[in-house]
Design a protein around this nucleic acid. Structure first.
Lengths: 211, 211
DNA sequence: ACATTTGTTTTTGTATACAAAATAGTGGCC
DNA sequence: GGCCACTATTTTGTATACAAAAACAAATGT
């Protein structure tokens, strides 16, 4: 692992703070303040903000300033629709490329989801759930596909996280993975992609309630 | 239409030059030279290069410099696989949202493809073909989906363009749209997405021969 | 009291300067 | 002649400076 450059570091910190909810949607990011906070000049800050904007995590304001992306219900619905299609495509490709390693990595991630859910570890479950989906992306063997999927995951992170309130929420989410896994492991592409679509749709129903 | 800022202008010019093939894959872009050429300082050039890098059109070199993205056959195959899935997803969504306007825009674009193909207008066909696919993206009613699709289209532009040599190539490509349109207009999502996948796959076979 | 204009302050975009990293070049040495 | 060490040059990343644009605020006139 190469040492991250200054702008990569800034990018990572901000991404993290947004996904954790420390920086909430709609909030404005001030170049000068960030420069002072990170102890660097505006130049690398600008570069980091540009990259985050390109990823859709931040959006440029009407006249000036960049803001943490904030979506209307309509936009949220569209962005999730797109994400569902991407996820479904990943499931589809993965179902056709499955090997022993991929299967075990997915199962492994699922165990961790269940463990975290049962112990009511919300933060742990969020991490494990990401890892679970990442395992599917990886199983596609296609880094380009994996990258768009990851990007959408980051973009929607702050909205999805909100839906997990109780331990029961976590358990239900974790258990719903089982059918999804079976669908993917069936190695039938239509079953896999439809399975993912319905998993995601069910999940989105919950998300919409809290956004 | 707002006047494009300096960096947007630079971004557009470079994008165009890459898609046209004036800047070929593997070529190095020198900040200082570009700065001189556009009559600006390195700062806005840097910003433009960053954005293009974020879009995957440029890639950072090992140690220094940015280069026009160049893909091995393996990578090309992966990137097209991803693109096929995105296009298929667009076809799928579009098939469920079709209205009269969308239908006529797609047919309109197709007429222009045929006209350009028959008159052997290569550049014209390339443009018309882009417009045809854009019409499908637009028919999804989902700007997020449309954006990723467009991004992939830009990224693969230089490789896809190469496959059109003769007028016959153009005509065959344009005529193969017919079946695709019928599949989408059937309003059956599986038919639409599978139709797009096979259209894209056939097209990729040609692409691979020349890359 | 309100709208409009004018002046002030912030904020952004671009230019320039500079230091650190990387490459290329040069000369000496075997 | 080939190879290594060392220097010069290019190139990059970051800082700083400055001018133009935008937001804000106050004052003026109606």
């Amino acid at each position: 692992m190469t040492t991250p450059s200054t702008v990569q570091r800034i990018e990572m910190v901000l991404t993290e703070e947004i996904s954790v909810g420390e920086l909430t949607p709609g909030m404005r990011l001030d170049e000068a303040k960030l420069a002072e906070r990170f102890g660097v000049s505006r130049t690398p800050i600008r570069e980091a903000l540009n990259r985050l904007t390109a990823q859709g995590i931040l959006v440029p304001g009407e006249k000036r300033g960049v803001f943490v992306a904030q979506y209307s219900r309509e936009e949220l619905s569209q962005i999730f629709e797109a994400m569902h299609e991407i996820e479904a495509a990943c499931a589809r490709i993965a179902s056709q490329r499955l090997n022993l390693l991929a299967r075990s990595e997915i199962e492994q991630a699922q165990s961790e989801c269940l463990a975290a859910a049962r112990s009511g570890d919300r933060a742990g479950y969020l991490r494990a759930n990401e890892a679970f989906h990442m395992a599917i992306y990886k199983a596609t063997g296609n880094p380009y596909m994996a990258e768009i999927a990851t990007e959408f995951r980051r973009r929607t992170g702050p909205f999805r996280a909100k839906k997990f309130e109780t331990t029961q929420d976590l358990i239900e989410s974790a258990e719903s993975h089982r059918e999804l896994i079976d669908n993917i492991f069936s190695e039938d592409s239509a079953t896999a992609s439809n399975g993912m679509r319905s998993h995601m749709t069910a999940s989105f129903m919950q998300t919409l309630k809290v956004n």
